[in-house]
Design a protein around this nucleic acid. Structure first.
Length: 548
RNA sequence: GCGCCCGUAGCUCAGCUGGAUAGAGCAACAGCCUUCUAAGCUGUGGGCCACAAGUUCGAAUCUUGUCGGGCGUACCA
């Protein structure tokens, strides 16, 4: 809209003053409303190129700039050479009418139409329950997937299921030890770095019920039984937690399939063929230093014959790329930072375009309560699980808290604050706005008032109304920004602003008591606000309650 | 040692693809319900944007260095 109505006249004016090449027009919304509704810094950008002062250039542009007065009511030069515009009533009428037509689709864009994107998140090993860190991963991943969907991408939500490798053996040994103990061998030694959580005992108890004492030896077969039982139990528990969090993924990709399908072997073969893998000390190495001098060679198959994590990771990313995605997004915790360049280089070495892979790193979560840190020890098994958190706080609060800070900053999750059902809790601020609006519509319906007829938006000229309208108009652009930066928090901050503008409007402008025409216009504005909040909250995966 | 992230109000954090007077929530204090949900609104106080140089018309934002905190740095994942 800005494009059609405002950018075009600018481009014409630039041509008129002899600027031939294309220059990027940056429209921004000034922080201070006295600087207008829209500000352009083009004169400053051109100052050096044209060898004139910004204010003179601005004046020249202005002399060649014509707008329909109904759309732009005033144009001014200010400060060092900013060109400030003010919207006219026609602009608002045009924009608001359009949003009403869009309704449930307001905010959607076609940026990503035709692009297939894979978003991989959660991807917790099936060796235990989801903890707080997984919670942040999950909330970020699901919201990013929603954002990409809203910007037109075709999104596949994927869970990489690490059911191979060392940690699974560890799980098997842990379950087996608890099984022996439960089956009567009370002093059976528990592996030193085994999984200490109480859930392991549950799995073992179920094995006792099923097999009695018959799993005697820690033979390969018996450990396999323990492993499968553990995997199955953990997967079921994880799925239950994800459901509670309203997360539903499309693809569960099993790591072990990479071995069964020969995809891991194919990576080794291809790397060898390209002279990028070699044998040394009984292990197979990948020659990363040949790909990038900043990297060092790494082992991909240990001398024991077991692959290291890098190898299946490379095979997995190759598989994703070969499935034809235009973009691949991985959501990883900060502890994975070091491995990313290796995997990227490996993918590149296989002749694939690793720039399609975007890795979103989130920093760690600290759980606090009244300023004191709550310990989350995995070893002792006394960790605060994600499940506990959802049961205590509800999915809305949990999801919101995990995305309300920038992905790249350490997140302090304040349990005491999250527990509050009152005005200190930031989730309710947004939801309350939605509930208040619904309540007004209920009230209107009870009084037989509907606003189905034609609406005269030009009646809305209270400052609180202007602020709300201007904020609402930014919704699609904010979703795009949030999606492009893979940063849910941008949308969170924006919605908070919408809610804030609404609450002020609600306070300043009576709706039901206004005269018919004005009431009708205000009800329509409320409708748009409600649509925006509801659409925005749905992207965050947070409910928009009608009553609170 | 090396790599990545962070350092902004008392606390938790926005702003960081350079722009005009650095913002919000909470906490503190003072107001607003005979009126559509007070889970709301209004006002006050609170800052060497960690520190130091550099880049330019202009720096919280970009570059370099220093200090402080976090996470990594395996034939663990």
């Amino acid at each position: 809209m800005i494009q059609k109505l405002i950018a075009l006249p600018f481009e014409k004016a630039l041509q008129a003053i002899g600027v031939q090449e294309h220059v990027q027009l940056n429209f921004e919304i000034p922080k201070v409303s006295s600087h207008g509704d829209l500000s352009v810094n083009i004169a400053m950008v051109l100052a050096k190129k044209l060898g004139k002062s910004p204010r003179i250039i601005a004046q020249e542009i202005l002399d060649n700039l014509t707008f329909e007065p109904n759309i732009i009511s005033s144009v001014e030069i200010a400060g060092a050479g900013f060109i400030n515009l003010k919207y006219g009533p026609g602009f608002y009428i045009h924009a608001l009418s359009k949003i009403l037509l869009l309704g449930e689709t307001f905010g959607k864009s076609d940026e990503g139409t035709g692009k297939k994107v894979n978003v991989e998140y959660v991807s917790a090993n099936p060796t235990g329950l989801l903890h707080i860190g997984h919670g942040r991963n999950t909330a970020i991943g699901d919201t990013v997937a929603n954002l990409l969907t809203w910007t037109g991408h075709e999104v596949v939500r994927e869970y990489y299921f690490n059911n191979a490798g060392n940690q699974m053996n560890n799980l098997a040994l842990s379950v087996y030890a608890r099984y022996r103990q439960a089956a009567g061998d009370v002093d059976y030694a528990f592996p030193e770095d085994g999984y200490h959580g109480s859930y392991i005992r549950q799995i073992a108890d179920e094995l006792v019920i099923q097999y009695g004492n018959s799993l005697g030896e820690n033979s390969k077969e018996n450990l396999e039984i323990c492993k499968l039982a553990g995997e199955k139990w953990c997967f079921a528990a994880i799925m239950k937690t994800l459901q509670k969090m309203n997360v539903h993924q499309d693809v569960f990709f099993n790591e072990d399939s990479l071995y069964h399908d020969g995809k891991v072997q194919r990576v080794i073969d291809d790397l060898r063929a390209a002279k990028l893998a070699y044998d040394q000390d009984g292990a197979v190495w990948i020659a990363l230093s040949k790909l990038d001098e900043k990297l060092t060679d790494r082992v991909i198959v240990k001398s024991s014959g077991e692959p290291t994590y890098r190898l299946p990771d490379i095979a997995y990313h190759r598989d994703k790329l070969e499935r034809g995605f235009d973009q691949i997004v991985d959501i990883f915790g900060a502890d994975h930072i070091a491995t990313i360049p290796d995997v990227m280089a490996g993918v590149q070495a296989l002749g694939l375009d690793s720039s399609k892979i975007k890795v979103l790193i989130y920093q760690f979560v600290t759980l606090t309560e009244n300023g004191e840190q709550v310990k989350m020890s995995k070893r002792t098994g006394n960790s605060y699980t994600l499940d506990d958190l959802i049961d205590e706080l509800g999915a809305d609060v949990v999801r919101f808290f995990f995305i309300m800070r920038g992905v790249n900053t350490h997140l302090e999750f304040d349990l005491a604050l999250a527990r509050e059902q009152g005005d200190r809790n930031p989730v309710f601020y947004l939801q309350y706005a939605h509930a208040r609006i619904t309540s007004i519509f209920t009230n209107a319906a009870e009084n037989g008032i509907s606003n189905t007829g034609s609406v005269d938006f030009s009646l809305l000229n209270h400052p609180a109304e202007y602020n709300l309208i201007k904020t609402l108009l930014r919704f699609p652009e904010q979703i795009k920004k949030s999606a492009q930066n893979l940063e849910p928090q941008i949308l969170v901050e924006y919605l908070r602003e919408v809610a804030s503008c609404f609450h002020v409007f609600y306070h300043e402008c009576p709706i039901m008591k206004a005269e018919n025409e004005l009431r009708s216009a205000r009800l329509s504005l409320l409708k748009i606000t409600k649509i925006t909040l509801r659409n925005g909250l749905s992207i965050l995966g947070v409910s928009a309650p009608d009553k609170m």
